[in-house]
């Protein structure tokens, strides 16, 4: 199995387009996942009876195979980018919800009591005390969700989308390994770079964790 290097240099434009479309699908899904999971996580954290229900439901959703989710969405949104994004969002949602709830749980009760004693209102406590302290655990979830979404986009090639995944179908149909190898390598690289960027973002966002370590 040899790599046809001239194919790569001939198709740099296509590869750029596919990479960008791949990244767009994955990032949209993670952002949507965050928007939906944050309020759900706050509810699951505060209202005990709902907690088991929400987490259990999201665990069941996670068990459903990704190809099945995309296919089951076909009657709703057809062979479109929307189907890809909704399917991916469902997956990221599960990881983000679980980690955000765990992050909120990890905030010490004393800290919350101190905020209350100082007269801070509940919403303000949530935004300025609880969420920042939960950030390391939430960010761990964001990293997992992002890497997973980047890898899963290619499954959507079966429903005619899939970003870099299209290279897999292309190589398969023409019995030509080069696009497949390029697709796998680019997907891994995207995941690696995205993960590294998120680690950097977390480092910048949580200066207090650094100070503690150096002291």
């Amino acid at each position: 199995m040899t790599v046809d290097w001239s194919w790569i240099s001939d198709h740099t434009d296509d590869l750029t387009t596919l990479t960008l479309s791949h990244l767009q699908a994955a990032l949209t899904a993670v952002l949507l996942g965050l928007v939906v999971s944050l309020p759900l996580a706050v509810v699951a954290h505060r209202v005990r009876p709902l907690r088991g229900l929400l987490l259990g439901l999201s665990n069941v959703l996670f068990t459903i195979p990704s190809i099945a989710i995309f296919v089951l969405l076909l009657p709703v949104s057809g062979l479109t980018r929307t189907t890809t994004v909704i399917g991916l969002t469902i997956y990221t949602l599960v990881v983000l919800l679980r980690n955000t709830v765990e992050g909120l749980d990890s905030v010490p009760a004393k800290t919350k009591e101190a905020a209350k004693a100082m007269g801070t209102r509940p919403l303000r406590t949530l935004l300025t005390v609880e969420l920042p302290l939960a950030l390391p655990v939430i960010m761990a979830g964001v990293r997992i969700a992002t890497v997973m979404a980047i890898s899963l986009v290619s499954v959507a090639t079966y429903i005619g989308d899939g970003g870099l995944g299209q290279l897999f179908t292309d190589g398969f149909q023409r019995n030509f390994p080069t696009p497949v190898i390029v697709g796998v390598v680019l997907t891994l690289l995207l995941a690696l770079v995205a993960d590294a960027l998120l680690v950097t973002l977390q480092y910048v966002l949580t200066p207090w964790t650094r100070r503690k370590r150096s002291a």
Binding site: F168, V184, A191, D195
Partner: peptide
């Protein structure tokens, strides 16, 4: 995390070819 990033569809096609 490597396992999570590896696209299974690509791997199957690659080994198939």
């Amino acid at each position: 995390s490597f396992g999570r990033a590896l696209p299974t569809v690509g791997l199957v096609v690659l080994v198939f070819l």
